[in-house]
C-alpha cells in the first residue's frame, strides 16, 4: 500500500471531514425539529395528525435513503423550488442544502420514533398521578413526563448523530464534497482505487468513535446527577 498521495492531497480529506461534520450537525438540528413535530403529531389525540405522521414515518422507514436523496435533489427543482446560492462556509450551497434536507427528512422520521418511544416509556402512573393532583395534560407533560422522557431521549439522539455521520456518505452521489466524495476525487487523480478508501474509513471511525465516547461521558454525568 502506498499512502504517499496524502502529502499532496490531505487537504481534500480535511475539507471532506469538515463538510461531513457540517452536514451531520445541520441534519441533526433540522431532523430533531422535524422529529419533535412528528412525535407530537403521533401522540396527539387528533386522528388526522396521527395518520399524517404515521404515514410519513412508515414511508421514510420503508424506502431506501438513496432513493429519498435523489427524489429531493431532482424533485425540488422539478416542483419549482430552487435553493438560492448564498455564500456559506465555502459550500456549493444549493447542493449542500439539498443534502441536508434529504438527510433531515429521513432522520426526522427516526428521531420521531426515538422521542415517541422515550415519552411512552414513562410509566402511565406518572401521568395519572399528575392529573389526579389537578394538573392539565399540558402541565403534566411539561413538569412530569418530558423531563423524565428527555433522559431516555438524549442518549438515543446522540447515537442518531453518529448514524447520520455514517449515512451522510451516501450524499456524495449528488456531488456534495463530503468525506466520501473526497475519497472518490483522490481516487480519480491518483489512480489508486484502494488507499483513499482506507483513509476515509479511518477518518469516519475516528469521528464516530470520538463522538460515541464523548456521548458516553455526557450520559454518565447525567445519570450521576440523579
Amino acid at each position: 500500500m502506498n499512502f504517499s498521495f496524502l502529502s499532496e492531497y490531505y487537504v481534500y480529506f480535511i475539507e471532506g471531514a469538515k463538510n461531513t461534520i457540517l452536514l451531520a450537525a445541520f441534519t441533526v438540528l433540522l431532523g430533531v425539529m422535524l422529529g419533535i413535530i412528528l412525535a407530537l403529531m403521533k401522540i396527539s389525540r387528533n386522528p388526522i395528525l396521527k395518520v399524517i405522521s404515521t404515514s410519513y414515518i412508515e414511508f421514510i422507514r420503508g424506502t431506501p435513503l438513496l432513493v429519498q436523496i435523489y427524489i429531493v435533489f431532482f424533485g425540488l427543482p422539478y416542483i419549482g423550488i430552487h435553493i438560492p446560492d448564498v455564500p456559506f462556509l465555502g459550500q456549493d450551497f444549493p447542493r449542500f442544502m439539498a443534502g441536508v434536507i434529504a438527510l433531515s427528512l429521513n432522520s426526522g422520521a427516526y428521531v420521531a420514533e426515538i422521542i415517541r418511544a422515550g415519552i411512552q416509556a414513562i410509566d402511565k402512573g406518572q401521568m395519572e398521578a399528575a392529573r389526579s393532583l389537578g394538573m392539565s395534560h399540558y402541565m403534566a407533560m411539561r413538569y412530569i413526563i418530558l423531563p423524565q422522557a428527555i433522559r431516555n431521549i438524549l442518549p438515543a439522539l446522540g447515537n442518531e448523530f453518529v448514524v447520520i455521520i455514517k449515512e451522510s456518505s451516501i450524499v456524495s452521489v449528488i456531488g456534495i464534497s463530503e468525506l466520501m466524495f473526497s475519497a472518490d476525487t483522490v481516487k480519480g487523480v491518483t489512480f489508486q482505487p484502494f488507499e483513499p478508501l482506507i483513509v476515509v474509513a479511518v477518518i469516519y471511525f475516528v469521528l464516530t468513535f470520538t463522538i460515541s465516547r464523548l456521548l458516553g461521558v455526557a450520559e454518565r454525568r447525567m445519570r450521576a446527577g440523579d
Binding site: D123, G125, Q126, E128, A129, A130, I144, P147, Q148, D226
Partner: peptide, 10 residues
C-alpha cells in the same frame, strides 16, 4: 393514592 405510589422520580 395509588398502589404503585407513582411518586415523581426526577
Amino acid at each position: 393514592v395509588f398502589q404503585q405510589f407513582n411518586l415523581f422520580p426526577h
